[in-house]
Design a protein around this nucleic acid. Structure first.
Lengths: 258, 258
DNA sequence: AAGTGGTCTAGACCACAAC
DNA sequence: TTGTGGTCTAGACCACTTG
């Protein structure tokens, strides 16, 4: 009955090998997603109301609703009753540091406040083979490499190396990394238009080498969490590789399984 | 307009301090949840169709649908188009070992197959203070304590201690733990009617003591992941405490952030 | 063919926020 | 008062499974 002019609703009567049936709301979701990644609406800004989107796509409000529901479930947009639907951002007070799961054993992370940052290094280099693979670049493509220490209450707790595609993050400086108030990912949104929407982490237990131990002011016999993270923008495009060493003597990595 | 005889839909005109407005579909969800925890439908069995539930609760099918949608999103039930909606179970082939996140660095966990289990101990003891707190018991209440080793391809990889409330798991034996084919949580469902629906983990890096190192056939200088898990049944009732030591020399703990 | 979940619609009304 | 998202309904039709 309804179908969007620029795309057909595949049906089960299609020829064999045709793409699987795609309901209207998923097509709508895809179109909204496209607008999001093309920056039609900036992080923090409101997207059109459900009625407006329904008119734009020539579908009922209920269908738009289901599409937006899924985007909200994936944390790509944020619904606020009475106000509208907004492009999610790492700058929000509520969900700040969504990706940092290292919590103090006792006490409240919100009371403690954000970490102090000390940037040790930030330079443009050629991607090594494994960095290139993680970021879906060619070997020897330009990347920005940064190293920093995060401290809580003066205690150096996280030592991390960050690799970013040189193209998208051209001009990133150590000062930017050090001085921006708020999550680093919020700065990425503001200054480079890159929004991280999800990430994957691989966690191991390791011992630090001498240099790492010095930075973290611990003995080389102190076991640490090694956390390798790949963060993705829209469309599963990898945009950051992070390798962190976490002290867990008075903090722990928290995870919820469901 | 509609309201379930046995419960009123609170409205904003209630007296101050009254419970917040609760939409119908959440009330329905609560009623279905109640039936789930009371065992009206067993794990793996079908729950009534949406039409039947709608008739039973005197609401429209759409309202039941939204309630069931949320239960499905929380992995409490599983929808299968054309067949029905089924109580989720850890025995399903598809989502087996949902809570085990230690994956091989290379290769496919499905190819590798399940771990070999060796049960070192399984006895009834009095709960220590911290175990009692984790399981919401009184100190010195009876608990079942088990210790086992999980090996992959003959390599001892996980050493874990498990504590279970003595009341709910009366009669659990080492043989049961060792011989059941499939996830331990599936055995809990089948033999004790206890279904784990979610869990929380605290992860640290630690060094093993001499005994632990021996069991895992490693040097005491090998860093390990310490994973403390509390698993919950319906209604957030804690039913298991697990303390695991994971070797991560050729495996890693994988986590998805979103 | 019958029954299940899945999609889509149109319309009514409610809760919340802003003007 | 207006506009937003949130709830609820009733009905039509589609896709999938089973007999």
């Amino acid at each position: 009955m309804h179908s969007i002019p620029t795309m057909s609703a595949a049906s089960s009567t299609d020829s064999p090998g045709a793409p699987a049936f795609s309901p209207l709301y998923l097509q709508i979701k895809g179109l909204i997603l496209q607008s999001l990644q093309q920056g039609e609406w900036k992080p923090g800004a409101a997207i059109p109301s459900e009625m407006e989107l329904a008119a734009r796509f020539r579908v009922s409000q209920g269908t738009v609703r289901k599409a937006v529901d899924e985007l909200a479930a994936e944390n790509l947009v944020l619904r606020r009753q009475g106000k509208g639907t907004f492009v999610a951002t790492h700058a929000e007070q509520q969900v700040q540091y969504r990706f940092l799961k290292l919590l103090p054993d006792t006490g409240d992370a919100r009371v403690e406040g954000p970490a102090q940052r000390r940037v040790l290094e930030c330079r443009r280099v050629r991607a090594s083979a494994d960095v290139a693979r993680a970021l879906a670049l060619r070997s020897a493509d330009a990347v920005i490499q940064a190293r920093r220490i995060l401290s809580f209450a003066g205690v150096p707790t996280i030592l991390e190396d960050i690799w970013l595609p040189g193209q998208a993050f051209k001009g990133l400086t150590a000062e930017q990394l050090a001085n921006y108030q708020g999550p680093t990912y919020a700065m990425f949104e503001l200054d480079f238009g890159v929004r991280m929407v999800r990430a994957e982490e691989k966690i191991r237990a390791v011992l630090p080498d001498r240099e790492q131990a010095q930075w973290l002011q611990i003995s080389p016999a102190t076991p640490l969490l090694s956390v390798e993270r790949i963060a993705y923008t829209y469309n599963d495009i990898p945009m950051e590789l992070r390798r962190g060493l976490y002290r867990t003597d008075s903090r722990h990595y928290r995870n919820a399984l469901s």
